[in-house]
Design a protein around this nucleic acid. Sequence first.
DNA 1: GGCACGGTTGTAATTCAATTACCTGAGGGG
DNA 2: CCCCTCAGGTAATTGAATTACAACCGTGCC
Lengths: 300, 300
Amino acid sequence: MTSVTSPGPTGPLLVRVRAVMPALAPAEQRVANAVLADPGGVAAMTISELAEVASTSETTVIRFCKQIGVPGYPQLRLQLAAQSAQENIRPEVGGDIEPGDSLADVVGKVAFADERAVRETAQQLDVDALSKVVAAVAKAPRVDLYGAAASSFVALDLQQKLHRIRRVAFAWSDVHVMLTSAALLGEDDVAIGISHTGTTIEVVEALEEAAKHGATTVAVTNFPRSPLARTADLVLTTAARETTYRSGAMSSRIAQLMVVDCLFIGVAQSVLPDARKALEETATAVRGHRLKSSVNDQQN
Amino acid sequence: MTSVTSPGPTGPLLVRVRAVMPALAPAEQRVANAVLADPGGVAAMTISELAEVASTSETTVIRFCKQIGVPGYPQLRLQLAAQSAQENIRPEVGGDIEPGDSLADVVGKVAFADERAVRETAQQLDVDALSKVVAAVAKAPRVDLYGAAASSFVALDLQQKLHRIRRVAFAWSDVHVMLTSAALLGEDDVAIGISHTGTTIEVVEALEEAAKHGATTVAVTNFPRSPLARTADLVLTTAARETTYRSGAMSSRIAQLMVVDCLFIGVAQSVLPDARKALEETATAVRGHRLKSSVNDQQN
DNA sequence: GGCACGGTTGTAATTCAATTACCTGAGGGG
DNA sequence: CCCCTCAGGTAATTGAATTACAACCGTGCC
């Protein structure tokens, strides 16, 4: 029993709450909303007061605590107090993007949301799971990547990176191709499904098919209780709170890319020096397609 | 964190405790000492446990609370939790990624680099130029996007976003197609070239071709003096310092995406309410491809 | 259409932490 | 020597937190 600030296995409490939100029952979601709306305030409430605010019973509040991995209500209060004390040091200049915002506001808010997504994702990322994924990918004869819409670009990005260090990887976004490809995977192969919500039918199906053939399955999603996460052997969660500006993937995709970059570097490290050599050779290959005036030789 | 908190950065509560110490009864002083020795630890204790530790009774603990101006024991716990949380502010983990770094180090460094890229890009972004780009794109009958390798994904991402709000956009990564497409652009059209270094021959050529036909040309690059930037009418610069781990685009691509997101939101704002309607319709369209267990309706 | 089932929610009983009321004993002054 | 005061504690009481249980609701399966 050391300190309140470093509780369970995973990172910051509020991040966890947001991640688990969709998997909660309605009454529990009301509690979650109350907590997210005013963490500091809730820390000052008794269980009955919070129940009142969330229009539900004390019982449900307790259930909510257990759901998010906190043993009881007093512990929740403590963690909320700790959390909101930290936030106050670095105030959230954020807020949602409004239709009337000036461009300067938009830039500020987007930047803040992206920064936060990166920071919080890193904080709560399960390094243990990541290392298992790295190990699996490093020794896999073949890696399949599944993603739809915006997530497909993340898949493509990873494919390209892995390809540059000679790992055999394929990124698919067509269900039919996903399924046929998954059907051809074997024991040592790895299949990675990417979906922010974790509910994209096609990606879930493909991962199930891959599992059926013995491949190691990995989910990259924001929601650890989502269907995709449940299907996978290993889960890497992001921590993006999408702005409500219904534009679709913004910070979620940034968070996914960060995770995928970490994965890539891990793999590259574990197959050094081959990776280094491969990277140098590929860099040399595109050098002829660079104009002068920059000594830089990275690709893109 | 179990250290004896002697010097400065402690907040008001512990300061107050120290101040009133001499005025306290012996048994109360024992409580005070226990609190000062390990504030975080005490926050995790019940009143009985603390009484035990201070070799005294619960009653004395309560008396101690009142003495230092805290109404009750639970309140003391909360304040201690908040206090000790503030003490451990997270340190900045800069530095380059080394081959021998642990995965946890890698995650920390990647996150830090990404965060910094986002922050610094936002700070130096030319909002005036951005607003001109927004205006041009908003009224353009057609937008061409050019990018190679990793930057092609950024182009595709933007294309998809613009498409969702009914803007006609094309993302090309094949030189031949780029050039033919550029040749068909007109006065009101916009061509956006994306290249981190700004030296990718194909992208520069395509932008030159587009300029030749009267289109507004835009560069998204890290280097304002690069060939690409010189070719373009408007320049949006990113501010990524690529880690030397020769992996290619990592934080540079994050920065590009942020810029592109701002551009997109700007355009969406300026064509409201059509954009809103379009976004809602597209969200509805994919709803059937979502599994339940999530109320969320963002795409990917 | 009805019936069984799993999952959700609330009520009531119970346990346990926190607080208060009250008691004891030691020291000091009249 | 007795009484008064006050530190300190025990035990009773209150109220918060938790658990046990029952009602309910939608869903899928005959």
